[in-house]
Design a protein around this nucleic acid. Structure first.
Lengths: 336, 336
DNA sequence: CCGCTTTGTGGTATCGATACCATTAGTTGC
DNA sequence: GCAACTAATGGTATCGATACCACAAAGCGG
């Protein structure tokens, strides 16, 4: 940390280069509108002074912050890692910057963060959730900016959505299990109040039961417990309650991996005695030693597509498809 | 997305409440300086108009953005998840907001992102890396703001650092293995050009060899390969090259879990025939089925401590300890 | 060589909140 | 009862970049 010296301003650069401030602005923002000669002078001055433009001031005068706020449900699990990567890269190409936050699946946290984010006057907002408090919904509606919701396909998106049908995916997975002879599948999830994606997958599970009695276990949230811990606890409780369960459909890969570990510890043969499936296809799911059967979602594509939509919308281009379904793939591996 | 209606300004709120704009500013920023009566009027007006303050404008005039930029090496693995959580919570209590980015272990990406971040005039910067390009270092030195580096203890921090000794941790882990009879430990890492933490842990491994021949394998980075994939490939290559290896010290938990899976697939007995250790103690490491022996790092504490330091520094308080060592714990579990 | 467009450049007002200073009313001390 | 203070509030300049308009010079067709 150096001394209290103030920042170099655009005016300083202009003086040093012998041009007007506005020319410096153009040289940096729209180089095509400036002569090659002037451009060189400006760049030299910028380098000499170590100038870094104040985008905060730029945002104020242009009424465009070039910031896109994004709120993901969790950063603890890598589910959204690829989506964030896709988003970040896509937005960067459009000259936009990602302002990231995590809601931890709590609607009130989401409300607070949306409010904070709006204070930075982002050009758009991206949310990996479609369940909002009334307060949040009001803020979003009044903000007058594009809002893109991810990983689901809400019936009435605030503005647009990119995702897939969680319900269909859940249904397909259970059908696959039933089709390969599993007759008593159980569904394992965490008991979170507003995890719409989990609700939808559970609904898909019910859809596919076809008259069989549902075996649904919602592990209560517990301080300091992580995904795999829930999975291990969940498996124990499921077997406790329904000992003859022959397939465990987990709402996420993190849970599935935890359940798998617990099964290994107990010496339960997988998949002969018990099939285990996950959701998301995170990196570890594919590890050869586990080989988790799961639903693959192309998170990076979701991110890229959301970025494309966002760039188009902020540029004022008309957006045709407001609900984009990118689908999913059943990835059948060793565990079921 | 609603129509093109402009944002409500502080002036609008002031008019609606029948007070001056500056009073509204004070009511929201320093309520103590405003009478209870006025406060109520202002809040009512804010609610009625759905006002959200423009922090961008506030930052410009007060020369304090209340933003702290943070760059982590990766978001793909949950190593830094707890650190981010600690940071975010700590900063929020100090009225600061986290602007998050990922460098993907690439110094040039870091340079680009530092520059972009500085354009938002953050009050401080936080980096989970101590290896910077000359360009980055110059920017940081000239920026005149507190820079806190995490997860390492550099000799000459830009401003301050919060972390632990990666070298000592690596050394302790290997000493533990050697002490329990492992005579031919190998070290597995990814071959990334600028992963200082990996370098230090490797150094620790060498320290503890005590005359034994080093067996170091750096898996070359490969497009689309994730942590566990590297681990699996790495185990294969290590056993190929040094078949009698009896302990595999992995530079991260992600690698260790992948190696563990591959070992399971090959029917290698763990830990009898081969010990496997990781680094970081991510959630899955503790899962009972794996029980990975690893180095536990209290990431959340690092985040909280960094937040405390940052708040103090931005408030102009004198900072005494610029290098804070939070230590680590050897967590011996089933795999070694 | 004259109107016309195109290209390059600069001056000035502006974005919205806050710093700074001024003002008023009320309170305290002697 | 008056100076000296505090509490509460408002007016105005300011932060740094960009929008908008103006203008000069160059290119160009006839």
């Amino acid at each position: 940390m150096s001394d209290q010296r103030k920042w170099v301003t655009m005016g300083d650069v202009a003086r040093h280069a012998g041009v007007g401030t506005i020319t410096v602005s153009r040289a940096l923002r729209t180089p095509a509108k400036v002569s090659a000669d002037t451009l060189k002078k400006v760049h030299k001055a910028v380098a000499a002074l170590g100038y870094v433009r104040d985008d905060t001031a730029g945002a104020l005068s242009s009424q465009r912050s070039r910031i896109v706020g994004a709120l993901v449900s969790t950063l603890e699990q890598p589910v959204f890692a690829s989506t964030i990567r896709g988003l970040e890269e896509g937005l960067r190409q459009g000259g936009l910057q990602l302002l990231l936050g995590s809601t931890r699946y709590q609607p009130d946290t989401e409300a607070r963060m949306v409010s904070t984010l709006l204070g930075r006057r982002p050009d758009a907002l991206i949310l990996t959730s479609t369940t909002h408090t009334d307060e949040t919904r009001r803020l979003l509606d009044n903000a007058g900016l594009p809002v893109v919701e991810l990983w689901e396909l809400p019936r009435d998106p605030v503005f647009a959505a990119v995702g897939f049908s969680n319900r269909a995916a859940g249904r397909d997975m259970v059908r696959h299990l039933v089709g390969s002879g599993r007759d008593r599948p159980a569904f394992l999830r965490t008991a979170r109040a507003s995890d719409t994606r989990a609700d939808l997958r559970e609904q898909g599970y019910r859809d596919a039961l076809d008259g069989r009695a549902p075996r649904i276990l919602a592990v209560p949230p517990h301080e300091d417990d992580s995904g795999p811990d829930y999975g291990a606890r969940g498996l124990a409780q499921v077997l406790d309650r329904w000992p003859d369960t022959d397939a465990l459909v987990c709402v996420s890969d993190a849970l599935a991996v935890g359940a798998w570990c617990e099964a290994m510890r107990r010496g339960i043969e997988i998949p002969r005695r018990l099939a285990i499936t996950g959701f998301g296809d995170i990196d570890i799911a594919g590890a050869s030693g586990i080989g988790l059967t799961t639903v693959r979602v192309d998170g990076e594509a979701i991110g890229r597509e959301a970025a494309r939509l966002t760039i188009a919308a902020t540029a004022g281009a008309p957006v045709q498809d407001r609900i984009i379904d990118l689908g999913y793939t059943l990835r059948v591996r060793a565990t079921g």
